[in-house]
Write a protein that binds this DNA or RNA. Structure first.
Lengths: 138, 138
DNA sequence: TAACCGCCCTGTAGCCACTACAGGGTCAAG
DNA sequence: CTTGACCCTGTAGTGGCTACAGGGCGGTTA
């Protein structure tokens, strides 16, 4: 049985975050010592690993809640899991595309800056006026 | 002179957001009618355009605060503006790279899923175990 | 002039996913 | 038995808004 600090260390998760996951019902309530301190069994460690890894892969708390519920129903078809993962993949893809557009606009803006004083700064000028951008962004 | 609703319409910014920008000191306090309603001059519209465009380009509120302060000092050298823009560009670049890594892991995970039941779902398996990932992410 | 209705006002609370305290209690080593 | 590292609960803060509640204003119509 692990204390919350030990669990935190083995999972790379902060103590406060573990308590937070418990409060929002993502982590089950662990046993307690006589002095009211949490003591975790291996299954808690596995679940926290699952949560942390999913978070690192960008899944939202609500998505993880669904994934956990699905992973508890071992005999059901995994189509719902697949759909969730694909939806998230598409969201990541969209974010990448919008950041690439952004980077282009930033590059154009920065390249345009030839030094000198603020009154003639290309960056300030572009920021004031979106029509000087190549395309849409944001 | 524009009412707050008119200003919102011409800038594509919500009314609440304009009031929020005023509260945090990003927008200057406008004049008021006898009945205490805000009335905006053209310079407010320009400033709000600057703010919105900067936000769309991903600058943080604090960065915009600095950019606005710098753009008010027309005769100073624009090196500080340039540095701010470049730093932001690098942050965007880093974010893109981390999302690309993420997308790769998600793709590998999704491709690995051959259907069937949750007990044998590759996605659930990888989520439980980071060592099955190619590299670091998150 | 009164009524109407859409707009405006302030202030507060909520969103996400944590993080950071304050003010106290517990556990294990020495 | 004392020390000090850890743990407890509860609340408030982060960024950048958004969404009310409960009231007031402004301009048009009757």
């Amino acid at each position: 049985m692990l204390s919350i600090g030990e669990l935190a260390q083995t999972t790379g998760c902060k103590v406060e975050t573990i308590r937070y996951y418990e409060k929002i019902g993502l982590m089950p309530e662990p046993e307690r010592t006589g002095g009211n301190q949490r003591r975790y069994a291996p299954r808690h460690r596995e679940r926290l690993h699952f949560i942390r890894h999913s978070r690192d892969l960008g899944f939202s708390i609500e998505a993880i809640r669904e994934l956990l519920a699905l992973s508890d129903q071992q005999q059901r078809d995994c189509a719902a899991v697949d759909a969730l993962a694909r939806r998230h993949r598409e969201a990541v893809q969209a974010r990448i595309e919008s950041l690439l557009t952004l980077r282009e606009e930033l590059d154009r803006m920065i390249e345009g800056c030839a030094g000198g004083d603020v009154a003639h700064c290309r960056i300030i000028e572009v920021l004031s006026d979106h029509s000087q951008c190549q395309g849409e962004h944001g």
